[in-house]
Design a protein around this nucleic acid. Structure first.
Lengths: 220, 220
DNA sequence: TTTATTCATCACATTTTTGTTATAATATAG
DNA sequence: CTATATTATAACAAAAATGTGATGAATAAA
């Protein structure tokens, strides 16, 4: 995941870079718009953090030119809120913006949000080699599609959204079967059984908690 | 839970230290930034209370350097509100701040809030190295998972929620076994035995009270 | 309608947990 | 210190909970 940080102030660039690198992003720097454009021409970035106020070529113009080359998500940095009021009229495809003074933590959070959105990972739940993509209604293990029955799918989804939390059979029944299900508790057991079978090596992440129910626990 | 207090004024350090120690935190002191950095290199702290205005190296710079070594939550102390206005632009990961003159109680409250948040301990019962996470239905000793039988788990949970309180066998029976249990009193003894075994070094916190029953008593 | 899937329940196997007993260890009162 | 009351421990059989495969009913698909 590579990010380009464009700002004329080296201090700001450094702070941003350090924070992003701490989150395992790879970061390049550019001191002005032209340098940024050159870099975009030669390398692929997943996101650009771009300051508006820059001496030679402002963030505005820079973005225009970059968007002609490649469609890369952009987070804009502005010195003051007012600068944005100008900006908003010119929707050039800004994905997000942050006003200075900004907290690097906030910036990192926004970067993460955008890269996720961009890579369509919003509705994916990932636990090691097991992924559930709710939008696609797909479950994969090592990128290989796993077909589950509807109940199994709902059950797995419930486990993943509540991973680390012990769920009683009753909770699972009301959550998945509905509050008006008056059947046997042990129906859950059967579905857990088949779900475990279908999940193969990942089946073991569904732990049995005696006298309580089940729990999805990845790692340990 | 270890805390490092960094301030050039010994008086402030002492006040903070005393208050934190009253809440069973372990506290180290540093009189300047370099001393603090040295300590961070050698020891593990859960939180740092850091004064901004210090003669040789200010809190700012100190924090920058500390964050390069380890990611430890920081509470900043400033003399006046205005100092923060400068600071906020360069938020390098401050978790909270307190302006002087501050109430020690408030500081302690913030310290507690942050350490809890940081260790995700909102719903955990913690007694030294023993933790019970009821949501996850998990018991750990020194972060190592301990497997208990259902009755042992219930028993421990009952002891922890009523720590410091003597519980008769009858109370335990009605609480855990149910009011309609007509078995032997001695049943409790057996389960206390196995529970103690499973708790290892923490087993000794379950005290026997002759002629009465048992009590969970954690002492520092 | 026919066919295929999915589902809920049952019955039995397997595993874990539990209560009791008998006996040893320990504390307390006299 | 001794006798007695009380608790700790170990072993084991009974009970309970869960895993599993089979089956017919229900549902959806063709």
């Amino acid at each position: 995941m590579k990010i380009l940080v464009v700002d004329d102030e080296a201090l700001i660039r450094n702070v941003v870079k350090e924070y992003l690198e701490a989150e395992h992003f790879k970061v390049d720097e550019a001191g002005d718009g032209d340098e940024a454009i050159k870099l975009v021409n030669n390398k692929d970035y997943d996101l650009i953090v771009l300051d508006i106020m820059m001496p030679k070529k402002d963030g505005f113009q820079t973005m225009k030119e970059i968007k002609k080359i490649k469609n890369i998500p952009v987070i804009m940095l502005s010195a003051r809120q007012e600068e944005f009021d100008k900006l908003i009229g010119f929707d050039l495809g800004i994905d997000d913006y942050v006003t200075k003074p900004f907290s690097p933590k906030e910036l990192v959070a926004r970067v993460k949000a955008i890269t996720k959105r961009y890579h369509n990972e919003e509705d994916k739940m990932i636990f090691g080699s097991l992924t559930l993509d709710d939008k696609a209604h797909e479950v994969r293990i090592d990128d290989k599609l796993v077909t589950l029955t509807p109940k199994e799918y709902d059950l797995l989804k419930c486990f993943l959204t509540n991973h680390h939390i012990a769920l009683s059979r009753e909770q699972l029944l009301t959550n998945i079967w509905g509050y008006d299900f008056y059947g046997d508790d042990r129906t859950v057991d059967t579905h857990v059984k088949t779900l475990r079978q279908h999940l193969g090596k990942c089946g073991k992440y569904i732990k049995t908690i005696r006298k309580v129910g089940y729990k999805f626990e990845y790692e340990d």
